[in-house]
């Protein structure tokens, strides 16, 4: 008997008194004693997936597929966003919520669209007077005009920048969040303890905590999921953009949902290691910058101005 099994049997013994009745099924213990995803063998992953699928079936009354696709060799994902084209319509925000099963109430959004005023007029301006520092703090997230784009404004959607040197990964005490070999920073939700150190470490405000039990109407659940991606989450875990891992690693090699919905085609996605990809064309031909470059987080999310 190894240590893990010993503790497990001890816990089962204590369970009759310690555990509330509604959680005292086998699934509860398996969840509690689940291993770290990165250390699981194929069989163990299969077991976990089966358990999760049964849980989700009971909760949402639907067959929800939990994928465990590995990284694709020779691929490093990169993203580019054309600030000259973005019109601030927020369709990407809700395409992401829909695709990735984010909680509708309380709201969790991976993408925040910021509005800036052109030039250096008072408030929400891009360059802060003489200091020359980009002033993200004065941008506006809660704009609601009848039509976008508005005159004299531009828009900047911000989401997880998939840093090559991610501060959230350094801050995580349990290594629940880590960088995969195709460059996507993921979260093993079952390993996350909800300490929010990563949220404090992230300079892009990309990470969100499930403060309450996430609520998604049953008919709105996206049944195609990935263990490290859009499977339904639980209260107390941190989540963030993962480049639609269930789409981009799928056999069809689909684009992320935000790329597909963008009405102006401002969002570009591809393999940074493939010289013929559009992302590489953009890096070679357009004026590209990375957000808060001075922090040395080295994002794989590039902003550019095509005009």
């Amino acid at each position: 008997m190894d240590r893990r099994k010993f503790i497990k049997s001890m816990a089962v013994g204590a369970a009759a008194t310690a555990v509330p009745l509604n959680q005292s099924d086998a699934s509860f213990f398996d969840t509690f004693f689940q291993k770290y995803y990165r250390e699981m063998t194929k069989e163990e992953k299969e077991e976990v997936v089966q358990r999760l699928e049964a849980e989700y079936k009971a909760k949402y009354g639907k067959d929800i597929k939990v994928g465990t696709e590995e990284h694709i060799p020779g691929v490093l994902f990169g993203y580019a966003l054309d600030l000259s084209r973005c019109i601030g319509c927020r369709r990407c925000v809700y395409a992401c919520v829909t695709e990735n099963n984010q909680s509708r109430n309380p709201q969790i959004h991976y993408i925040q669209v910021l509005r800036f005023r052109r030039g250096t007029s008072e408030g929400e301006h891009w360059i802060a007077g003489a200091s020359g520092v980009s002033n993200l703090e004065e941008s506006v997230k809660y704009y609601d005009p009848p039509l976008v784009p508005q005159e004299e404004h531009f828009y900047m959607p911000v989401q997880c920048q998939q840093c090559e040197n991610p501060p959230c990964v350094k801050a995580c005490p349990t290594q629940a969040t880590y960088k995969t070999r195709d460059g996507i920073v993921v979260v093993d939700y079952n390993w996350c303890i909800g300490c929010r150190y990563c949220m404090a470490a992230c300079p892009y405000d990309a990470r969100k905590l499930n403060w309450a039990e996430p609520y998604i109407p049953k008919e709105q659940i996206n049944p195609v999921t990935h263990y490290l991606g859009n499977r339904p989450r639980m209260k107390g875990c941190v989540e963030k953009c993962f480049f639609c891992i269930q789409r981009v690693r799928a056999k069809e090699r689909r684009y992320p949902a935000c790329v597909e919905i963008c009405p102006v085609g401002a969002r570009k996605f591809g393999n940074l290691l493939d010289p013929s990809s559009e992302i590489r064309y953009i890096m070679a031909h357009e004026r590209v910058f990375r957000l808060k470059e001075e922090l040395n987080t080295s994002p794989k999310f590039f902003y550019f101005f095509s005009i």
Partner: peptide, 25 residues
Amino acid sequence: PLKPSPMPARPQDINKVLDTVGVTI
């Protein structure tokens, strides 16, 4: 120009989320 999707709930309005509805684009 397009009609933008609704803005996210402000921190003081998080109790005002009623529902989510489908829009096909």
